[in-house]
């Protein structure tokens, strides 16, 4: 058991999982905070608490689902393609689309429902990535979960700040997701005879997938690249007129 922790590949896998967790965790904390904003003050704490608990439980359940699903034939194939897509999405700049029609829920139950559904959708990429990187190793899987849980609760500003400081981190993350997807492809039972015949495929396919994600991601990003402008949200003025201050707020 202990020897396992001493090997280099194990630590490489640990690093992979941390990276995937950090880059694909982002949004949950924001949704929890925002969904509870419209609740009456006394229910807000409750909402956040239930929301977080729900998110954590959901993450655990989803992870184990993902692992058992990925042991089925052909599903690794699907998972690998999904991961490649997730990697490309990571590299792509944000689309500005306005979903104007969502109603703000002012009831506790409604807020929790929003949080859980959002968590479900937003956990999928993370769970799939971690499950693929863990390659069925239970201790790695649990480790990945443990890392992701504080990230759910934590402010996602951390991720934004990291990307701002090291913009290339998203390319590294995209390549990593591609690589992990490739590893998943190689381990797909369907290709077992082929891979056995050509051992070089063990690193060739992940490499090709990583490059694929990078090139497609970069190419798509270049097509719609616009330097993102900061949005002006609020303008206000306080004018002191003979000791009387008046507030003028304009949007």
């Amino acid at each position: 058991m202990l020897e396992m922790f001493m090997t280099a590949p194990f630590w490489v896998d640990v690093l992979k999982i941390i990276m995937i967790d950090v880059l694909l965790s982002g949004d949950n904390a924001v949704v929890i905070a925002l969904a509870c904003r419209n609740l009456p003050a006394e229910q807000r704490k409750q909402g956040i608490l239930f929301g977080m608990a729900g998110a954590v439980v959901l993450r655990i359940v989803l992870t184990f689902f993902a692992v058992s699903l990925l042991s089925l034939p052909y599903l690794k194939l699907v998972g690998a393609f999904l991961l490649i897509w997730i990697g490309i999405k990571l590299i792509l700049p944000e689309d500005e689309h306005d979903e104007g029609s969502i109603k703000a829920d002012t009831r506790l139950f409604g807020a929790i429902k929003t949080i859980i559904i959002a968590d479900f959708v937003m956990s999928l990429d993370n769970v799939l990535g971690v499950a693929a990187a863990a390659k069925g190793n239970v201790s790695l899987l649990v480790f990945g979960l443990l890392i992701s849980i504080p990230l759910i609760a934590w402010s996602s500003q951390l991720v934004l700040k990291l990307i701002d400081r090291f913009p290339y981190i998203i390319y590294a993350g995209g390549a990593l997701l591609g690589y992990v997807a490739g590893e998943m492809l190689v381990s797909e039972a369907l290709f077992a005879p082929l891979v056995e015949a050509h051992p070089a495929l063990h690193w060739l396919i992940p490499g090709v997938c990583a490059v694929l994600v990078l090139t497609v991601g970069k190419w798509l990003a270049m097509r719609k690249t616009t330097t993102e402008r900061a949005i002006n949200l609020l303008d206000g003025k306080v004018t002191v007129v003979a000791d009387k201050s008046s507030d003028v707020i304009s949007k």
């Binding site: 982002g26 949004d27 924001v30 949704v31 925002l34 969904a35 904003r37 419209n38 944000e94 689309d95 689309h97 306005d98 979903e99 104007g100 029609s101 969502i102 109603k103 703000a104 929003t114 559904i117 959002a118 959708v121 937003m122 402010s155 996602s156 500003q157 934004l160 700040k161 900061a230 949005i231 949200l233």
Partner: peptide
């Protein structure tokens, strides 16, 4: 300056006014 924490996925669940 506020970090733009609410990106794509968040907007699917939370309306812009709240954000």
């Amino acid at each position: 300056v506020q970090w733009k924490v609410a990106t794509g996925n968040v907007k699917l669940f939370i309306n812009q006014d709240t954000i």
